[in-house]
Design a protein around this nucleic acid. Sequence first.
DNA 1: CGGCTTTGACCGGCGC
DNA 2: GCGCCGGTCAAAGCCG
Length: 292
Amino acid sequence: MSDQNNINSNHPYNMGSDQGFPFSDHNFNPFMLFNHPHHQNPNGFDPSNMSFTNFLHGDAQYNTLSAAFDPSCSSSHEPPVNDSISNCTKSNNNSSVSLSSLEAGVEEESKDLQPKDCEDGDVKSKRVKGKNKGEKKQREARFAFMTKSEVDNLEDGYRWRKYGQKAVKNSPFPRSYYRCTSQKCNVKKRIERSYEDPSMVITTYEGQHNHHCPGTLRGNAAMLPPSVLLSPPPLSLSSFPQNFFLFPTSQQNHPNPSYFTHFNPPLGQPQLPDQSSPLVHMTSSFLHRREP
DNA sequence: CGGCTTTGACCGGCGC
DNA sequence: GCGCCGGTCAAAGCCG
């Protein structure tokens, strides 16, 4: 209740408005996007195809990173159950993906999620108080993308239980919090609607599924239309932590068609387009840790 | 009745 | 220290 009234006008981002893409930042690693520790280029993600531009959207200047993905499907591998940001995403209702991004807190150790991961203890008894002091909470790697959809909660093959909803600062649309219903799976996702473009749904996955998709996606994985929205992203990603830059994408800024290619998620990753569907153009956007 | 959603309360981080 | 804010909990209610 009071949350609804606490919205102020502070912009949620820390935009590096006068910077190019800060490659010098050692924290950034394009391969962290899908966090495949054992494969050199698991997703066909080719950093050499990345390019960067800047554009203005409203009052903000965006540092834009685009990357090409290998169009081939890596169906020859058995899905690694513990595959990084494991989402099976199929979208419905003429949805189209326009953005993906990552946040990965690799360096920090997570203690916060342990009680939930290990259900053995009496986790339910009470809220965990008195976390280990001095140990910083680590966020799981995140993978976010925007989807043009009329429905907020896109079917992605997994089962989710909603555990919270909060009003979003600077946005009339609430943010919903979901947790994977599978036992011992701590994957979460947040869903919010862009306030600048209410037709866009921002989905953020956090964590790794430790199980396979409960639902069969093969039959109807071709939910994604070939069209992909690449309009300048609305500035409603207030959920992203303030110490991260946002690198949205904009098709208008990428005349080179090589920027757009199939998106081939790693196994356990969003199953976006059907392989037989026409070429799907995608660009990716990344969250980038800000220099302290 | 089990699974899920809703919703107010609570907690921790962070900035001032 | 205080207030704001994001994130989570958990009781209550809903629904098939």
